[in-house]
Nucleic acid binder design. Structure first.
Length: 564
RNA sequence: UGGGAUGUCGCCAAGCGGUAAGGCACGGGACUUUGACUCCCGCAUUCGUAGGUUCAAAUCCUGCCAUCCCAGCCA
């Protein structure tokens, strides 16, 4: 994958995972002479979000960096929460981000038969037993954080009985929840995960791949190390909350016959301020129809970010720059936005647009006349060529580009002031027309015929340049302006119920009337520049023909601050 | 005296015994046919804290403090 953007700015020092990997593949290391093999193992129970991008970039990125491989694996061991819709969206989003798992696409469910056999191996070794305790009893006997647990009365069952019972669990002889298979470890361990964890439960639910073939399903702690080992994963990279599962991970790997011995390494999850990353809460928004869907532009999902105009490169760069550590972190939205602007600035083709149109009439420009100008598509890259812009007496400009009574340090249009229409002419404002309510509905100006192209014949400096669109050729489009969806200080501190109380304006389209917005030379896939302040990037592919979606907060960087 | 982890600028983050990189944000200036971009300049005498070892510590040792994770038949 080519890193188009300033590679030199990317972190040059190695993070701790890289150090571990290099140690492992170095002479004398655990994986000396082996290929680094990682995996990204999402559970298909929701859409991927920006937080997953970190895990994706780390796993695929590290494999790539060390000439290794990275598998994509659906960790589908809990049929009650999973669905094919999610396995498809996950693949789409990872591809969009720019990563390729080639043919290495796996499902944990493919290993169910093998896992079942390995569970029996554990039983035969006297390391697992069938427990008849109810969920409630199990919890009570597990003890607390400060008190040890109590051994299950079923802990001493014979191997033969355990084998028989486990086989009958699989055969469907018992009701859901009636029995579990537990690993026999240590009920007094300080690590709760080691207090005879349940490794198989009885659960009658339709599995999106295996259908009703199974009524017992392995638990994460048992399944995951096996999945990794069967795929010969060398480095199982996961987030920090699994740190105290590592002893159990190792226990499984050590006590069951497996082809390899993966090493689990944990890193801190990505936190973004003002952003809800909890899958449960995102699902709530979708299910309660508070958003259009998982790909609503206000969602922090990859598909939402995509619709909002985020580019894969910007997200990859963001993840790369944020770094990898074990420190709990909350990264500024502004940093993500910066990464987008950086990419857009370098690669986006510019197009002019106005979102709140105000009529501009050039009183000294002949009625019926028109002309065209050539404009560079991207000042950062001449190779992007030029486009033609049309021009006539009647134009649209942005409402905020005119002030009858200019604020201090306002350089744009006001009576008596000169401004440049980008790529076209210098104009001088001569007045405005108001409606019966006193609202400005039209701005009047005279153009300087000597300034074709935008430069004054006498070389005088023009303080400001504004965008415009020719009303004769403008394309009308509905613009949907979204604000950020989550703007509470600490969204995760609040319960999901707070979502109903947030400002309705941030949930609704800010400008719900059909804006008479105009776009010139709009083409699919192009990024748009918005006024002079930044860019907006409607993702036409993902919107209806007449709807352009963008996020003002993300794509605009205000530089004119009234009163400043 | 449960177990595990983490504490370096507002936010990320280098640093691994030799005297605090970088990015974002922010402030100031230059430039500019996007008040964008770009470019300069500024922005931690200090590394949670208290001691100790050392010629020398953010880096080693000890104690303390703070925060996070773990008591799903979720992942």
């Amino acid at each position: 994958m080519a890193e188009e953007i300033k590679e030199s700015l990317l972190p040059e020092s190695k993070h701790f995972i890289q150090a571990f990997i290099e140690e492992d593949i170095a002479p004398g290391g655990q994986y000396e002479g082996k290929t680094v093999h990682t995996r990204f193992p999402p559970e298909p129970n929701g859409y991927l979000h920006i937080g997953h991008a970190k895990a994706i970039c780390i796993n695929f990125g590290l494999a790539e960096q060390y000439n290794g491989l990275c598998n994509l694996r659906m960790d589908d061991t809990n049929p009650s929460k999973e669905d094919v819709e999610y396995v498809e969206s996950i693949q789409e989003d990872i591809r969009w981000l720019g990563f390729d798992w080639a043919e290495r696409f796996y499902f944990a469910s493919d290993y169910f038969p093998k896992m079942y056999e390995l569970a029996k191996e554990l039983i035969r070794k006297g390391l697992a037993y069938v427990c008849d305790l109810t969920a409630e009893e199990t919890r009570q006997m597990r003890g607390t954080l400060t008190e040890p647990g109590v051994n299950s009365p079923y802990r001493k069952r014979s191997v033969a009985e355990n084998l028989d019972l486990f086989e009958r669990m699989k055969a469907g002889e018992f009701a859901d929840g009636a029995r579990t298979l537990r690993a026999k470890i240590d009920m007094s361990s300080g690590n709760m995960n080691m207090r005879d964890p349940v490794i198989y439960r009885i659960l009658r639910a339709h599995h999106h791949r295996t259908g009703n073939a199974w009524c017992i399903y392995p638990m994460y702690d048992f399944a995951h190390p096996i999945e990794d080992a069967l795929e010969c994963i060398t480095h199982s990279l996961c987030s920090i909350e699994f740190e105290d599962h590592r002893p159990l991970y190792d226990w499984v790997v050590d006590n069951v016959t497996l082809p390899s011995r993966p090493r689990q390494i944990e890193f801190a999850r990505l936190g973004l301020n003002y952003t809800v990353m909890s899958k449960r809460k995102l699902r709530y928004l979708v299910e309660e129809n508070l958003v259009d869907g998982w790909d609503d532009p206000r969602m922090p999902t990859l598909s939402g970010l995509r619709r909002r105009g985020y580019t894969p490169l910007s997200i990859r760069n963001f993840i790369s720059r944020v770094g990898v550590s074990k420190v709990p972190n909350t990264v500024d939205q502004a940093f993500l936005e910066f990464c987008l602007r950086e990419d857009l600035n370098a690669h986006a083709r510019r197009v002019m647009a106005v979102t709140r149109p105000l009529k501009l009439t050039l009183t000294n420009y002949p009625e019926g006349q028109s002309e065209t100008f050539m404009a560079e598509n991207n000042p950062e890259n001449p190779a992007d060529g030029q486009r033609e812009i049309s021009f006539s007496k009647h134009l649209w400009i942005e409402e905020e580009d005119f002030m009858e009574e200019p604020a201090r340090k306002y350089f744009r249009l006001f009576p008596g002031n000169e401004v440049r229409l980008k790529h076209a002419y210098i104009i001088k404002c001569t007045g405005c027309v108001k409606d019966e309510n006193g609202k400005v509905i039209e701005v009047l100006a005279e153009y300087d015929p000597q300034s074709r192209g935008g430069s004054a014949a006498d070389g005088r400096k023009i303080k400001s340049t504004i965008h415009f669109v020719d009303s004769a050729t403008a394309i009308n489009a509905e613009l949907r302006l979204y604000d950020r969806l989550f703007t509470v200080e600490d969204p995760d501190a609040a319960d999901v119920s707070y979502l109903e109380t947030i400002n309705p304006h941030s949930l609704e389209v800010l400008n719900n009337a059909k804006l008479e917005a105009s776009l010139a030379s709009a083409k699919k896939g192009e990024a748009f520049q918005f006024l002079r302040m930044g860019y907006f990037t409607p993702d036409l592919e993902h919107s209806t023909d007449d709807a352009l979606v963008f996020n003002r907060a993300v794509t605009l960087k205000d530089s004119y601050k009234p009163g400043k």
